[in-house]
Design a protein around this nucleic acid. Sequence first.
RNA 1: GCCCCGGUAGCUCAGCGGUAGAGCAACCGCUUCGUAAGCGGUAGGUCGUUGGUUCAAAUCCGACUCGGGGCACCA
Length: 643
Amino acid sequence: MSENKIAVTLPDGKRLEFAGPVGGGEIAAAIGRGLAKAAVAVRVDGQVRDLATVIDHNASIAIVTRDSPEGLEILRHDAAHVMAEAVKELYPDTQVTFGPATETGFYYDFARSEPFTPEDLEKIEARMREIVKRDEKITREIWDRNAAISYFRSIEETYKAEYIGEIPDGAGISLYRQGDFIDLCVGPHLPSTGHLGQAFKLMNVAGAYWRGDPKNAQLQRISGTAWADQSELDRYLFQLEEAERRDHRRIGRELDLFHIGEEAVGSVFWHPKGWKLFRIIENYLRMRLDKAGYLEVKGPQLLDRSLWEASGHWEKFRENMFIAESRDDKVLALKPMNCPGHVLIFRNRLHSYRELPLRLAEFGSCHRNEPSGALHGIMRVRAFTQDDAHIFCTEDQVTAESIAFCNLLLSVYRDFGFDDVAIKFADRPPVRAGSDEVWDRAEAALRDAVQAAGLSYALNPGEGAFYGPKLEFVLRDALGRDWQCGTLQLDFVLPERLDASYVGEDGARHRPAMLHRAIFGSLERFIGVLIEHYAGRFPLWLAPVQIVVASISAEAADYAAEVARECAEVGLRVELDSGNEKITYKVREHSLAKVPVMLVVGRREAANRSVALRRLGGKDQEDLALGEAVARLKREAAVPSSS
RNA sequence: GCCCCGGUAGCUCAGCGGUAGAGCAACCGCUUCGUAAGCGGUAGGUCGUUGGUUCAAAUCCGACUCGGGGCACCA
């Protein structure tokens, strides 16, 4: 009898003994009633399992609750199953395929000849809520593989049958049953559909390929969001609204920064204020690059086909290049990248090892013929400006140059208010140029460098550039969203292909290593990120219009003009509003235009030669002498890292 | 590129078989006013383009185009 005893160890080290094999639910109940209620699964020796799992050996146990990360994932996965059940009830001719949890919810891909309409989504969501109320028990069953295949074939679920056919033979096939709905699934799942709760919402329908391959059938993906409770759901929905309010396309229009039109699909028409912002950012970075020992160059837009053939782009990326023809029948391409041009500049004369590292920088206009579906505002365009540079150096210098670059990049990001930066290391992709030996060296060198810089990184396997491994720098914005902007790529291939060399200490010619690097990636995209990060409320040094001087009545108009002149004289970007609107109207108008500072002047200020300084969104103003206000604003508007 | 949804005045949107409307913005007056919308008036649209159905199309159908949400892509 005593050998049947089961002892479980809880996360806090406490041990519980049971007379025999025991279910996860019973363990939770033994610990406490509250826990039993919140329990959705059990972790047995590190593996998350159904709550009903019977533990028949001594094990370390943790009860997974619905609000834990694992619990939430199970809940979302269940939401997908409940949705599939609802869809099968409402539209029995639909086939289910695959339906996982996502970061904020879940989706399920369905095969159905009729498209799902928004009204269908409402019906499906309503049916899901019913299924939750039915509180159907969810149970796990292990089937024989062939039995499972013929079962799914018999109910005309050909995708499921196909998928099971590819699961390796052996352990049996795990199925989950809830009500009349049976789905192939490894689990784990909630004890019953009632545990899902009602904090979910269907969001949209979209196309998705079976197994992500465009050659396969296109399925209909219904996605939703699901949370542990209603307040979490509400918070998420509010976040979505906030993201919409900050959408750079909306703010770009509201602040008159740029527009995008069908006359130039995928390109940006920069308006005066947007272009001012662009130039502020470009000049800031130019200043940083000058200080960091870069040399700015400018290469041609159109380059001959032969160069792209030599670089390898013609073979690998021609689909994405805009091709042009000259009148003497030469074929040229608009550059999609700056590197071949920089190599041509480098090898235009012989270089000594004493000149290395040589850092050639360019604000390079690049054109890439992106698929139409990929375009998105100014974030993903066909014509963009890279803050590109190529560092030609010896292999020995790679580490030091990489460290210097990482530090420069982090410092630049900080100046823009981004303190949270993640790094990914992308190693060799399946399709690549260069031998495995070269890749071994390149990957090792880059990894050494990032480690030497004292930075931690996550591996991003197979995502390197075709010519070399890369570091990707991902910044997190005010809404917690990630944006990949910066990159550092090590390349031993292109110098070889385009025959770049330098004369070494030994008098012989050597191949330089080449570091491709960008901090913003694309100026257009980075500006889009900035707009959303700041919700259009730029810090003073970035704001296209820093100050509006607004007069209260016509009497103060002359003085207002003088104030504006004083501001402009010290280099502040200022506009004058001495129109005959009421001050409340002016305050509202310039607040909506997100101008950081208003200097309000009326009869009183004109008499005292002072200004009332009002900050964007502020309630009260500060009365200052004109000279003091100007001096203070000038100080505040200083470009960071400029002194 | 693929699937679904959409395109009405500069912007936000109503109209959804009987021939185009509102608010804001613009323009013109009046108002000179102390911190997020003073008042009045005027002008503005071949309803994305194009073909079809109909006595009649912004409205129904097709194609194209642009945009949106995804998928795929992202050197």
